[in-house]
């Protein structure tokens, strides 16, 4: 077990290092002197000198990378040019919104995608299945921001049930009630991903239902619902769990757009605004943190998957 965890963690760290090199190279791939790229053309000579010194731009590239990676490891992702505050602080300010949005979205995905996928599989071939599978494919073909705009149009502008934009912290006035600001965004964000999980759940249920051991279970004379829950579903969910890493990545991608539609003060919108403002240290920092998170989640998914499936040799 320990060896497996170690090997898997090692692979994740290797990927992280490679990804960090890509992120570091990013600033050098932008045409122009990195310092002017970062500070803009209106920079004063002192500013230029200070940044040049801080980034170690006169050193060879390898050293520059080590300096950058070293300070990142110590929690220093540099300074935002626009806000003139540490990048870590900019990220921290968006973290609450983005994390809550991700958690609520994940809840919708699991709460709708899995049970409805099971229903479609159990009713395979009937009009229920065809309707649900068709709907799932339709939802997977819909841009999240378009769903978001319609949700705003109907439930915020039209019916007035939910606010249309922004998100005051749950630590401010209103407390947990402020979560209502995240209902529409999370629904928009969940739609295509729940559809994918639905399709995956259905497909792997049908795959497992053809297995010999399911026939053995039926032969025992146990009630059909128990065959489904204990034998088919349990094995089918293994495949679904392994897709959660992928779902998380899709979620982050689409959160960038969703946060923009709903004007949520999250990390995703920060990235877009930083791109428009050419605030490169923030872009670099956010992407590094997100890749890190993604790798950690994938690692956890992988490890838990190995726990759930006794066939996998852990030694």
């Amino acid at each position: 077990m320990g060896r497996y965890v170690l090997r898997r963690t090692g692979a994740a760290i290797a990927t992280l290092i490679a990804a960090s090199i890509v992120i570091f190279a990013f600033i050098h791939l932008i045409p122009g002197d990195p310092v002017y790229v970062m500070l803009g053309d209106g920079a004063t000579p002192e500013q230029v000198a200070r940044l040049r010194n801080r980034l170690g731009l006169d050193e060879p590239l390898v050293f520059q990378y080590l300096i950058w990676a070293g300070s990142a490891l110590q929690g220093d992702l540099g300074q935002s040019i626009f806000f003139e505050t540490p990048v870590t602080q900019v990220i921290a300010e968006g973290a609450e919104t983005s994390i809550l949005l991700a958690v609520i979205t994940m809840f919708w995905i699991v709460a709708f995608g899995v049970p409805v996928g099971i229903l479609a599989a159990i009713r395979q071939g009937t009009w229920i299945d065809q309707g649900l599978s068709g709907l799932a494919m339709l939802l997977a073909s819909v841009p999240t921001f378009w769903v978001g705009l319609y949700l705003i149009l109907i439930f915020a502008a039209g019916l007035g049930w939910f606010p249309s934009s922004g998100f005051p912290s749950v630590f401010d006035d209103g407390g947990l009630y402020n979560l209502r600001y995240l209902i529409l965004p999370s629904l928009a964000l969940a739609a295509p991903n729940a559809a994918l999980i639905l399709r995956l759940t259905r497909a792997s249920m049908l795959d497992v239902a053809r297995e010999d051991y399911v026939r053995t279970a039926r032969a025992k004379g146990i009630p059909p619902y128990r065959v489904v829950l204990r034998h088919i579903l349990r094995n089918a969910l293994l495949a679904v769990v392994s897709a959660f890493g992928f779902t998380f990545a899709a979620l982050i991608s689409e959160a960038v757009v969703t946060e923009t539609v709903f004007a949520l003060p999250g990390i995703g919108r920060t990235v877009v605004q930083s791109i428009l403002r050419r605030d490169y240290p923030v872009i670099q920092g956010v992407i590094l943190v997100i890749v890190c998170l993604y790798l950690i989640i994938n690692l956890l998914v992988d490890l838990s998957y190995r726990f759930l499936d006794p066939r996998v040799e852990l030694e």
Binding site: Y213, T216, G221, R230, H231, N235, L238, P310
Partner: peptide, 20 residues
């Protein structure tokens, strides 16, 4: 392939015992 890979032998036999 006729035994469920994620359930222990005891559970798979016990399941039939419980019914019959």
């Amino acid at each position: 392939t006729s035994l469920n890979p994620v359930l222990r032998i005891g559970e798979q036999i016990g399941e039939a015992v419980r019914v019959h």
